Computed example of a mutant assay.
Amino acid sequence: MGFSAQWLALREPADQKARDPALLTRAVAAAGPAPVILDLGCGTGSTVRALAPHLPETARWHLVDNDPLLLDQASAEAPGRVQVHELDLAQLDALPLEGVTLVTASALLDLMPAAWIEDLAAILAAAGLPFYAALSYDGIMSWEPALPKDHDVTRAFNDHQRSDKGLGPALGPDAGTVAATIFRAAGFNVQQAISPWRIAAEAVPLHRALVEGIADAAGQAGQPMAAEWGRARAGMASESRCLIGHLDLLALPPRTA
């Protein structure tokens, strides 16, 4: 389970625009006046870049990933205020929670199984920590102009998203709603908001990389027309628009709800 720095850089502008601003503001408030933020699956530091403009300059970060090359890039985001941790996210009991005031994740929950989210919710409930998870894919795709195979490819892609990413069958497009249920059951006050990507015709590199990835995953899931669909969509990238649905989640423990 992992993504290249090139793909993360391509998607970041769409991610930053998509985040629900009201929920981001509430997450910042939940971090408190002296924020210490633990970011799970940090990649190159996208969450730091999204939240830092809204936080005091003294905010400190613990960044967790299993890719040392991505961690090297992320460590430069807030020199002197970032500590990186090369950890497998299966090792939730090894998370550096001491002193942390907010736990975050971006584009992560849809890669995880329900059991992992249940374990995380239990750990954060015991620690009394809020959790802000942005940009969980929700299974919605729409394209302008439409093609006859759009629905079939989306269905196959969603099936692929539910496959095992290393920790068990992933929740894929069900992650946002299932995570909300899990955190509520653990006693959290849960707030959600939609955060769709809206990719315009001028975002050609992102559009082409996106359809290439969708077509590849849909093909692996058994959709025989996926490659043909991907070539058609890539050829139309400079004239097309698309919406890719996501959900943001903020879970506040009882003492901060």
Rank of each mutant, 00 (worst) to 15 (best):
E98L: 08
A125Q: 11
M141P: 08
V100M: 03
M141F: 14
F131I: 08
E118S: 03
A105E: 09
A107D: 04
Q91L: 11
K149E: 15
V100N: 06
I117F: 12
L120M: 13
T154N: 15
W143F: 13
M112H: 03
D152M: 14
L120G: 05
Y137K: 00
W143L: 12
M112S: 00
F131L: 14
P145F: 03
A105P: 10
W116H: 07
L124G: 08
I123R: 15
M112A: 09
I117W: 12
Y137C: 02
A105N: 01
Q91C: 13
E98F: 06
A125F: 05
W143Q: 08
A126E: 12
A156F: 10
T154A: 15
V100R: 02
K149F: 07
Y132T: 03
P96A: 09
L108H: 09
V103Y: 00
L108A: 07
Y132R: 01
L102I: 06
S142A: 14
L120R: 03
L102M: 03
E98C: 07
W116Q: 06
P96D: 10
L109Q: 04
L97P: 13
W116E: 00
A146K: 04
A146W: 04
A105C: 06
L111Y: 05
A94Q: 06
A126Q: 15
F131H: 09
P130D: 02
W143P: 05
S136M: 14
L120T: 10
L120C: 13
G99Y: 01
A115Y: 09
E144C: 08
M141G: 12
P96Y: 00
L147E: 14
D138A: 09
L111H: 14
A122T: 15
M112R: 12
A146S: 11
T101Y: 12
K149R: 15
S136Q: 14
A107E: 11
A94M: 09
I140C: 06
L95R: 02
A146V: 02
D93K: 00
L147K: 05
D150T: 12
H151S: 15
A134I: 01
L95S: 02
S106H: 05
T154Y: 10
S142V: 09
E98I: 01
L102N: 04
A107Y: 02
D150L: 01
P113E: 07
L135Q: 08
D152W: 08
K149G: 14
P148C: 03
G139C: 04
L147D: 08
P113K: 10
A107M: 05
L109W: 05
Q91P: 07
V153E: 09
V153C: 02
Y132F: 13
T104I: 07
L109R: 01
D119M: 13
L129S: 00
A114E: 15
P148F: 08
V103W: 10
Y132D: 11
P130C: 13
W143E: 05
W143I: 10
L109Y: 14
Y137Q: 00
S142Q: 15
Q91H: 15
Y137I: 03
A133D: 10
P148E: 09
P145A: 02
A114H: 09
P96K: 01
D110Y: 05
A134E: 09
D138E: 00
M112E: 03
A94V: 14
